[in-house]
Design a binder for these strands. Structure first.
Length: 503
RNA sequence: CGGGGUGUAGCUCAGCUUGGCUAGAGCGCGUGGUUUGGGACCACGAAGUCGCAGGUUCAAAUCCUGUCACCCCGACCA
């Protein structure tokens, strides 16, 4: 039991760190606040990218790339944004080093930049500065562009994947001729995010606008997808902003309408980041390690051949190779993003079988097939599903001939089961509360999503978050119309909003 | 930025209070052998300018001064 994972019940944060570490997903680098994403973690990100990118393309978007550096004056042009990001910007002030005898490399004082460059915390400003040159006529609209990039936000307190100084994301930036069209775009993307979260990550989400206090600086309003982690805390998993004409005005982006009028363009921006990987971990994983939904799993099936004698090893290894050949030839299906099944064979005969099984469980491979002499004598194998921990997920005596159909069906079943289980958990930890006293009690124990009436004011929202550390996660589209009274002030409210403690 | 703490092998740490042989352990790593259906074991081995600089001393990982880095707790965030 050398590499045990801390149980969730004992220390949830440590459990999370143990999973990230032992599953080989990421580690802290020697650069403060920055992580190294290791191959197994990056493989999940690549799968996320592929699925999302196709969804963006299917909705008419194209990819482009804008600079990492943003002149300070650009950032300053949109006042809300400048204020929102000022405290977490990395600033480049010089462009050269020089070697000084005795001192080593120093920043060359003669290389000071005329104007400091900001490392992008987000790219609205540089992009809208560019759009100014691209947009003259209504015929140039809509402009539907996405970029895959890294950004830097100088965070004090970091956690792998969930909050790091540098992270990877995609950011969409669109320009439209009408307000309606831009608003439709923001909603359309939110639906893309919802379906990605639920259908690919198997992570149920609430959707709806943020309050004014929680929205993106520079946005007229922000829509979000919000998920519940297993410690009952909320995770903002994606945001889609309606930016109004704020950036068009800041960067003077006008177009001539069909009627010949000069008008400011309407904008949206939207993004999801490597934070989703943290969400995926905290939604599904158990005390045995990572649990990865099949549609995003870097490896779908691992075959572990077993044997003592050289003959037994050779036989089971050969059978494993034959099985892999069969499995990877299964016709590509939309369900798997038209990609072939990824099947790995574990050749480590030198290690004990238990150690090998556990290693794949920690890595979250959805299906494991064990083949030893006892199985092969009967032309069967042991089939283990990762959504049930350890031996609980095992079925012995599965005929080899049935595997191709069984494996595909089981992958789909695991995907479905993970979503339903997560949804059940979220719903079981969501409560309607009707008084502030009840709220204060429940927010600590048991925690979770508290649906409550709120008067819609910033003052009340701030008061609640100061007193309880809980914030309004979103004003869900899913809420019922229900006349009520704010639990704090008693002022009228037309529906409940969702409060929770959040990452 | 305020308070607390830690720097010794790849990792986790002991040793420091009370200075003294060649600086230790566990894990990991390498080699050889025995093992193998839920985290195997034995033997041997490689690996450290004790964060850095200066000082005290016959003698410093240990005491003193300075310095750097990192971690934890309080105001923000995909």
């Amino acid at each position: 039991m050398a590499e045990a994972i801390t149980p969730r019940a004992k220390d949830y944060s440590q459990w999370y760190l143990d999973i990230v570490k032992h599953a080989g997903m990421a580690e802290n680098s020697d650069v403060r606040g920055c992580m190294v994403i290791k191959p197994h973690g990056y493989a999940i990100w690549e799968r996320m990218q592929r699925a999302l990118d196709r969804m963006f393309k299917d909705t008419g978007h194209v990819n482009a790339y804008f600079p990492l550096f943003i002149p300070k004056s650009f950032l300053a042009k949109e006042e809300q944004m400048a204020e929102g990001f000022a405290k977490e910007c990395a600033v480049v002030t010089h462009h050269r080093l020089k070697a000084v005898p005795g001192e080593g490399l120093i920043v060359d004082p003669d290389s000071k930049l005329e104007e400091p460059l900001i490392i992008r915390p987000t790219s609205e400003t540089i992009i809208w500065n560019t759009y100014k040159n691209w947009i003259q006529s209504y015929r140039d609209l809509p402009l539907l562009i996405n970029q895959w990039a890294n950004v830097v936000r100088w965070e004090m307190r970091t956690r792998l994947f969930l909050r790091t100084a540098e992270f990877l994301w995609q950011e969409g930036h669109t320009a439209h001729a009408t307000k309606q069209e831009a608003e439709d775009e923001a909603h359309k993307i939110l639906e893309v995010y919802r379906s990605f979260a639920e259908d690919w990550m198997a992570m149920p989400v609430l959707t709806g606008p943020k309050t004014d206090g929680q929205k993106f600086p520079g946005a007229d309003y922000t829509l979000c997808i919000e998920a519940m982690m297993q410690d009952r805390k909320a995770l903002q998993a994606g945001t889609s902003h309606f930016l109004g004409q704020n950036f068009a005005k800041a960067f003077d982006v006008k177009f001539q309408s069909q009627a010949g009028q000069l008008e400011y363009a309407w904008a949206t921006s939207w993004g999801v980041s490597t934070r989703l990987i943290g969400g995926l971990i905290m939604t599904h994983s158990d005390d045995g390690g990572l649990v990865c939904p099949p549609r995003l799993a870097p490896i779908h099936v691992v075959i572990v051949p077993l044997g003592k004698s050289d003959d037994e090893k050779a036989n089971s290894f050969k059978a494993a190779e034959q099985l892999r050949e069969t499995l990877v030839r299964i016709p590509r299906e939309e369900f798997f993003g038209y990609e072939p099944l990824v099947v790995e064979i574990d050749k480590r005969f030198g290690q004990s079988p238990g150690a090998r099984f556990i290693d794949w469980e920690i890595k979250g491979v959805p299906i494991r097939i064990e083949m030893g002499p006892r199985d092969l004598a009967q032309q069967t194998c042991v089939l283990a599903r990762r959504d049930f921990p350890g031996k609980e997920g095992k079925t012995v005596g599965v005929p080899l001939g049935e595997l191709p159909t069984k494996v595909v069906a089981l992958l789909k079943e695991i995907q479905k089961n993970l979503f339903e289980r997560a949804k059940k958990y979220r719903d079981a930890n969501s409560f309607e509360v009707n008084s502030y006293d009840e709220f204060k009690k429940k927010i600590d124990e048991p925690g979770g999503f508290l649906w409550a009436h709120w008067d819609g004011t910033r003052a009340t929202e701030d008061r609640i978050s100061n007193e309880t550390k809980a914030t309004i996660r979103c004003i869900p589209f899913q809420r019922a119309k229900e006349a009520g009274k704010c639990m704090v002030t008693g002022a009228p409210s037309e529906g409940r909003v969702v409060f929770a403690k959040a990452y």
